[in-house]
Design a binder for these strands. Structure first.
Lengths: 222, 222
DNA sequence: ACCTGAACACCGTTCAAGT
DNA sequence: ACCTGAACACCGTTCAAGT
């Protein structure tokens, strides 16, 4: 009913659950987990902190809704694949990249599993595990293992990213970490031996190599 | 220099980093993550909140120190094993049980990887991966995949435990979850198909089955 | 029905003052 | 050197009062 509705975003949208979640995601992306406060969020929404509580029960519900939205979007963008194997790699990469782009989602998923977000990923993975063609009794274990691995790596990758963010350079950081290990060489002989690989490894490639390992395990044990 | 030093704990110990960390662990175990505040901790230590800062820089350092201590203890209790395979299962079970008993450790490990705690687990796993006898170029990937999977499952298991703690019965909860899935049967056909397994599955056994899957993958791809 | 914003009961952390 | 505890700058959440 505004006099001139412009095609793009209107200046004054009414408060709604969807809009609150959307702005919360922006805030989390911009400022990190610590940046999401009801005061900051209210200010971006040009209202008072109390108004938000009319639409959302509390901060936890807000975080659940925000991470569900991000995961749903990511799953929607996963392309169809020729083989189940490729499809599983695609889902895995989609989750990895979504959490890499929105690190706070990782923290939220490990704080509250059994969210819709996890269920969505599990379902997607499961269908492909089924298509892989092993015996039915192995499906649950295979899909669970894939889900746990994917979430585990993605969360740690996101945490690393957050750690490195402000001033630190990735190469510098890894250099320092592996130097530390070399100093403790007597206590950590294995780690020192593979430290070179740490310095040069590609997180995403390493992640997918782990997926292949689990897929090989699934195929081997049927 | 007390008049009568008793064999067991003295009533009045001086403040020290070790003692603070020890009492913090007790507090976290008793009250959960939310229970660790500098005021509550100070009160258990019969001092003021400011005193703690003489020994520990901030809350994050306290959480890192506490989880390092728990993991170090758990790793110390892992028994020697005949085969590398058994040793890896033992390390995995040790981590799983330590995080199950101290759920807050899970949250902390996924918030701050590259802690001593993670390094210790990685080193232990790595030595056994090496003993497994595959090619050296595969060691890093194999040990990383195992570590990620172990931490991923343990963290989620701990989060579930926290979720279920207060009044909820595990069977009831799983019943409700799988009922929810059945209602959304059209959206989650795979999940519904394996829901029966969810209701009756044993988390620890499922976890070890996942380890076996990865081990099978490691052996298959060499 | 929905919004406002002051107020409440907490936090982590600092710091002047003590011993 | 180490401890004390009040004070500061924040939180999430509630709620009387408004429209």
């Amino acid at each position: 009913m505004a006099k001139a509705t412009r095609g793009s975003e209107r200046r004054e949208e009414a408060l709604s659950r969807e809009r609150i979640v959307e702005v919360a995601i922006e805030l989390l992306d911009d400022e990190g987990e610590g940046g999401l406060t009801f005061r900051a969020l209210a200010s971006r929404l040009a209202t008072g902190p109390g108004a938000i509580y009319w639409h959302i029960a509390n901060k936890n519900e807000l975080l659940v809704a925000a991470s569900d939205a991000v995961v749903a979007r990511a799953m929607g963008e996963v392309l169809a694949s020729a083989s189940p194997r490729e499809a599983i790699r695609g889902i895995a990469a989609g989750v990895f990249e979504a959490i890499d782009a929105h690190p706070w989602v990782g923290a939220q998923l490990s704080r509250a599993p059994w969210q819709t977000a996890m269920l969505q990923i599990f379902e997607r993975l499961g269908r492909q595990v089924q298509a892989l063609g092993g015996p039915e009794r192995a499906w649950f274990t295979s899909a669970s293992a894939l889900l746990s691995y994917i979430i585990g790596v993605s969360v740690q990758n996101a945490a690393n990213g957050r750690l490195l963010e402000p001033p630190v350079d990735r190469a510098d950081f890894l250099e320092k970490v592996s130097a530390q290990w070399t100093r403790d060489a007597h206590a950590y002989p294995f780690t020192v031996k593979v430290a070179a690989r740490l310095r040069e490894h590609d997180d995403r490639a390493e992640f997918l190599a782990g997926i292949d390992l689990i897929l090989a395990g699934i195929e081997a044990s049927r």
